[in-house]
Nucleic acid binder design. Structure first.
Lengths: 350, 350
DNA sequence: CTGAAAGCGCTTACAG
DNA sequence: CTGAAAGCGCTTACAG
């Protein structure tokens, strides 16, 4: 079924059918109604590829998930629930606005070409980058992607001004620095003076900002910074356990650890418990990310929760606005979202 | 940049450029090389929409995630990590075979139209349905989707023969019944005689098969079936807790529960522990699905793990084969995958 | 308000 | 082995 057949059936031209489909004003109500009825009756769907070729947008948003290469052959990618928190909301909101969502995984340097292809083949009108690394930008800039790209978790100062000014990029960040500062002050209020930190790997903006926020807050609040309280967890459970074991052996334990993500907190807690060290009574924990596991385990993990929903929503809307050309000029294509402290059972009041 | 420009640059016709792009044999090596060089040099990407319109496939696979409507406005869809286990593998494998992946969420009856649209607008060459419900099939059949569809977790007998015979559908299931039977026999070997079950909602094939496998195995192995040991968990943590509370109050506890999914096991365990009932010493647990939370919590949950990877891989390959017309005739478009018992710390040997 | 015609960027018989 | 031409199913100035 194509538009010409509908046209014949109704007794109008293809042009008119097209006008109805695109909801143009210059069609009489009567004609419009007849066409709409025929479309409904024969379940006509305009061919997306023909529409796009003839000048319409593809109505498709690309979501690019940057992930570490999995070591084994059977990649357990799904363990990265970090992405899912954004992905399903993005899809849902995009669908509700009439966009289709194309998802691609980026697991190595050459995979960045997938992004370029998606744009160059005109498969997508805009893109959202999730899991951004410090080197991601180079890859993208190298590929000269022209349309609109939303980048999550990237320091705006690292982006060449022209991209931001030409409104070719939108930056969406969580306020990781502020969240870490808040976590420290919250813990101080709870009576903690020895506050440790378990670091992620700092090739992501969020991990490094969380750490910097911690460092600055410790100094600003007059707490003493102790190297022995800072562990290199590398976002990695076994590395975290190992570091924790060493700290236990040295008997250099703070009264609480802030962890750059929930999973390191979970690994560290398990390690302490094995040694009979009570959590949270002896050592308390605050995680980051609000994973499902943290919410369900015992004791339930207190954590800093990013506004996944708002960030996902804003990313879709940024692309939508850009395509609708509603984007105002200026610097409002940089967004920052606050965290929420979710108080559960792993912070003991001293 | 379009094919005509490349043609001019090289001094050949568009036809020849097209032949090179599509890797047709009837081009001299010399010409092919020159064209390829120009394509590389000018970073030419054929327009996907023009290609498809001119008769090529869209090289896009649709993944349709059927999920319950979330109660709140801010849908916490990402809590459904059931999907992610499949989704990221599907994307990865599809990408590696040169397919793009379009993902759509189905949260209500009218959303099934999204599936029809994706096919009718020719945006996808084939589709994968995840999270299938007993009523999903009606929706799909009603929409008269013509191309190839892979359906996960659907009883083959419910599908009209003609769809299977015409190779318009592939069915991919986990061996839920057998897994439940195995779980029961495993527990019997561990000395358990009072084996309970926490049920999901039975509008999914997997939930009902897990329950039926349990029932049949109890009978077959000569164990006594006790209604009080069977709880209506409805795949729901609060419902499970409530049912568990009642069972505790009645003092009608088996020595072990098989749970139709991990999350119900987690809720039930928490409930027992609150009452000072030791897990696994007093009451043991086997879950289903192998969620990350189950692997990380304390005690670590013993669970039946579906072969997510193989199922995802097979679904992509089924579509690929169908598009390549490699699909053999016959009934091999129904696949069943075994579970693996992951022994951790929640089954106590009596 | 409506239609005829050109054009979007490819592929593919067809002819040579 | 290669090119000219038709065609894929739409949209959009253009003319009326």
């Amino acid at each position: 079924m194509k538009s010409e057949e509908i046209a014949k059936l109704v007794g109008v031209s293809r042009s008119t059918v097209s006008r109805v489909i695109n909801n143009y004003p210059n069609v009489t109500d009567e004609t419009r109604k007849k066409v709409l009825e025929a479309i409904e009756k024969y379940k006509y769907h305009p061919n997306a590829y023909a529409r796009t070729l003839a000048g319409k947008r593809s109505d498709t948003i690309g979501v690019f998930l940057i992930m570490d290469e999995a070591p084994g052959s059977q990649k357990q990618l799904h363990h990265n629930d970090f992405f899912t928190a954004y992905l399903e909301t993005i899809i849902d909101i995009a669908n509700s606005k009439g966009y289709y969502v194309l998802v691609q995984t980026i697991t190595c340097a050459k995979d960045y070409k997938k992004i370029a292809s998606a744009f160059c083949e005109q498969r997508v009108d805009g893109g959202i980058l999730i899991g951004t690394r410090s080197d991601s930008l180079n890859h993208i800039l190298k590929e000269e992607i022209c349309q609109h790209m939303v980048v999550m978790d990237m320091e705006p100062t690292q982006i060449p001004k022209k991209y931001l000014n030409q409104e070719r990029m939108t930056v969406i960040n969580a306020m990781d620095y502020e969240a870490a500062v808040y976590a420290v002050s919250y813990l101080k209020e709870q009576g903690h003076k020895k506050i440790g930190f378990i670091k992620g790997i700092e090739k992501t903006r969020s991990a490094s900002m969380r750490y910097r926020g911690y460092l600055d807050a410790i100094k600003k609040l007059g707490l003493t910074l102790c190297d022995a309280y800072i562990l290199e967890g590398e976002f990695n459970q076994s590395k975290t356990s190992q570091q924790m074991e060493e700290a236990i052996a040295k008997k250099m334990l703070p009264t609480v650890y802030i962890c750059a993500n929930d999973y390191m907190a979970i690994a560290a807690m398990e390690c302490l418990q094995k040694h009979g060290i009570k959590v949270p009574e002896k050592v308390s924990f605050i995680g980051f990310d609000n994973t499902k596991t943290g919410a369900l385990m015992q004791p339930k993990l207190t954590t800093m929760c990013p506004d996944y929903f708002a960030m996902s929503q804003t990313s879709v809307e940024a692309i939508h606005k850009h395509l609708m050309k509603e984007q105002k000029t200026g610097d409002d294509n940089i967004y920052n979202f606050a965290f929420e402290l979710i108080e559960r059972d792993t912070v003991h009041t001293l």
